[in-house]
Computed example of a mutant assay.
Amino acid sequence: MPKSPENGSETDEKSTSEAFPADNGHEGGASDHVVILPCHVAGSGTLDRLANTARDYAKASKAKNTQTAYLSDWKHFSRWCRIKGTDPLPPSPELIGLYLADMASDRAKPLSVATIERRLAGIGWGYKQRGLTLDRSDRHITAVLDGIRRQHAQPPKQKEAIMPEDVLAMVDTLGFDLRGLRDRAIVLLGYAGGLRRSEIVSVDRGQDETDDSGGWVEIYDDGCLLYLNAKNGWRTVEIGRGSSDQSCPVHALEKWLHFARIEFGPVFVRTSRDGKRALPSRLNDKHVARLIKRTVLAAGVRPDLPEKDRLSLFSGHSLRSGLASFAEVDERYVQKQLGHASAEMTRRYQRRRDRFRVNLTKASGL
């Protein structure tokens, strides 16, 4: 099992810890020129190569989607500062408190508490890239944020869990060309594995076959193993064979791999417009969300709701919450399958569990 992975030209008389090019704290993309070598160290071919390697590891320190979101947060904050006639540098807890208050009280489009908290994390990340530290525990930030939580916090909006019978109905709407075989394997594998949509599309046929690989798959007589470089590090997901070929995720995966002739590289790739030819490029994770919405409508899941509501209720995450809600096994096995560090996190995914199986009222003698 591989271990989980844990910029660089010299500048004259400048700090060597900046992760962005000089931009006076304003907008700008994440730099490919993070300076690793101290300015008093003479460059050499060996050190320059190590600096490039260190830059690559620095880029991998956070998921690409996280870095993209944080960069967007920093841009938004920088733009807000410019509009208000101030500068984001150096860090000012008082200024950031005003920014958070403005985001929460915007009458046109107030941000949710979760988005505001993410924005704050992105701002802290932006300062860190510039060798600066934001004290997020400062009272000018914490007091405002606590007030925002108290006045605006709402229960999390969760996606609807897909029931087992819904999954079978959804895959029945898919064809038997290459596109249909691929999408059938995605739905069944995602459901049985409790996988995130990014995990589904990141898997390769074998280990270390592509630069953007998020893991690989091994197929056995009794099922398959997915080795995933997931959100919290490497984990192994065990997916056994189903009770019939029609509902078996491993059988669906084998058929897709066979007819698409995939022996190397990404497992799930794009297909030609006619759905008859596999293309070399990896499938985007947004396809999983679109696939779930499309098959939910085609299968008539939740016919009691208007089409617009059904589209908003179901997404790629519905596969993950479906497994957590309807797998009739001990909770600890579901927790392991989903890769959660705590049982409490697993329970957040359980939409229809037996909530009163343990009755503390009776246990206490009442």
Rank of each mutant, 00 (worst) to 15 (best):
E254G: 00
T271M: 12
P266L: 04
D285T: 10
A289Y: 11
C224T: 02
C224F: 09
E307T: 13
S272I: 01
V269H: 04
I262C: 05
F264Q: 07
P303M: 11
D274A: 14
Y220Q: 13
V237A: 03
R310M: 04
Y220N: 11
R282F: 05
S243D: 15
L225R: 15
I219S: 00
S281Q: 15
G233Q: 15
D212C: 02
G223A: 05
G215P: 03
S213I: 08
L257M: 15
V296F: 00
V267K: 08
S312L: 12
V296H: 01
E263Q: 08
S272Q: 06
F268T: 00
D208S: 14
A260V: 06
L225F: 12
K231W: 08
K231A: 06
A260M: 09
E209Y: 09
A260E: 04
V269D: 01
L291I: 02
A278D: 04
L283R: 10
E263D: 13
H258P: 00
F264M: 02
A252M: 06
E238R: 14
E218N: 08
R270N: 15
R310P: 03
E307R: 10
K293W: 02
I262S: 01
V301Y: 08
E238Y: 12
G242T: 09
G233L: 09
R235Y: 11
N284R: 11
N229D: 15
N284Y: 07
F259T: 01
G300C: 09
D222T: 07
S243P: 02
N229P: 03
D221M: 06
R261N: 09
R241I: 02
A299T: 03
F268R: 06
W256E: 01
L305F: 15
A230Q: 11
I262P: 00
G242E: 11
F264K: 03
R282A: 09
K255W: 05
A278P: 15
K293F: 02
N232V: 02
E209K: 05
L226N: 07
V288A: 09
W234F: 12
L279M: 13
A230Y: 02
L311E: 14
G242Q: 07
I239R: 03
G233E: 09
R270A: 07
G242D: 07
D208T: 03
I219V: 15
A260T: 05
E218K: 10
D304Y: 03
L226K: 06
S243V: 14
S312V: 08
I219K: 04
G265D: 12
T271H: 13
S312W: 05
